[in-house]
Write a protein that binds this DNA or RNA. Structure first.
Length: 251
DNA sequence: GCGACAG
DNA sequence: ATCTTGTCGC
């Protein structure tokens, strides 16, 4: 079956000349494929490497948040990683990387767009965080290999995905109480949880990325959301990459 | 053929 | 993702 015939993928075209002449492709899945078909192939190859058991750290010392901001022109981006003390939620280290989107946006292939810049930012850290909290999904993905899985496998760090909107799956709104959740089901399996991090506010979509159990992922997200809908890790990274983009634009 | 579609 | 006008609430 052709890629363009697969369910859930309309309007898929080859990413024309958005990707500059690409150097030799490293075999670790960290670089940008030259086509949609190759990107899907990379996901299919790396998916078996996801550790679905975990359970991951119960009391991590440090937790990293990752996020990316785009220039309005869409031709420039800033990726940020912020490392927080998991107990105090204070930022202890951070790094940014400014560059170009590595792939056009295609639902399901989102990781290829941001991964290179995020990995570059991670490389600039002196600390190795004990958990990655990604802005996007992990297993809650059409091929069970969203950004959080990709980032987790490539770095071999425990990782979870926290999305603001669903990509796949059926769900019912959880009770309007912080901590309430309902399963996110797709294709007959539970791929994540719809978690209420604040009463009276839209829930978030939590899924396993790598080396984490869904229970622990839920626990960690609640620990990171004492006050706001989104994890403090994500909020810190969001602020940082926006600021970095603004700074890069004016210099 | 018509929707649905992380950021 | 980013742009947008107004509105609500602390």
């Amino acid at each position: 079956m052709a890629v363009s015939d697969q369910p859930g993928y309309r309007n898929i075209r080859e990413p024309e000349s958005i990707t500059p002449p690409t150097p030799p492709t490293p075999p670790d899945g960290a670089s940008a494929p030259g086509s949609v078909a190759k990107a899907v192939a990379v996901q299919d190859r790396l998916r078996p490497l996801v550790d679905l058991v975990g359970p991951g750290p119960a009391v991590p010392a440090t937790v990293a948040g990752l996020d990316v901001a785009y220039a309005e022109s869409g031709d420039r981006l800033a990726a940020a990683v912020t490392v927080l003390d998991a107990r105090t939620l204070v930022v202890v280290e951070s790094a940014v990387s400014v560059g170009r989107p590595a792939f056009r946006y295609v639902p399901g292939l989102f990781a290829f767009r941001e991964l290179p810049a995020l990995l570059d930012a991670l490389d600039r850290l002196t600390t190795r965080p004990e958990l990655l909290v990604c802005d996007g999904h992990g297993l809650a993905h059409p091929r069970r290999f969203g950004l959080a899985c990709h980032l987790g496998v490539v770095t071999d760090l425990p990782a979870i995905g926290v999305g603001k909107t669903p990509l796949v799956g059926d769900w019912r709104p959880p009770a309007d109480v912080r901590g309430a959740w309902s399963p996110l089901r797709d294709g007959g399996e539970v791929v994540g949880r719809v978690l209420r991090t604040r009463a009276g506010v839209k829930p978030v979509f939590v899924s396993v990325g790598h080396r984490m159990s869904l229970d622990n992922a839920t626990t960690q997200v609640l620990a990171l959301t004492p006050r706001f809908r989104l994890p403090e890790t994500t909020r810190a990274a969001d602020r940082l990459c926006r600021d970095a983009l603004a700074a890069a634009a004016s210099s």
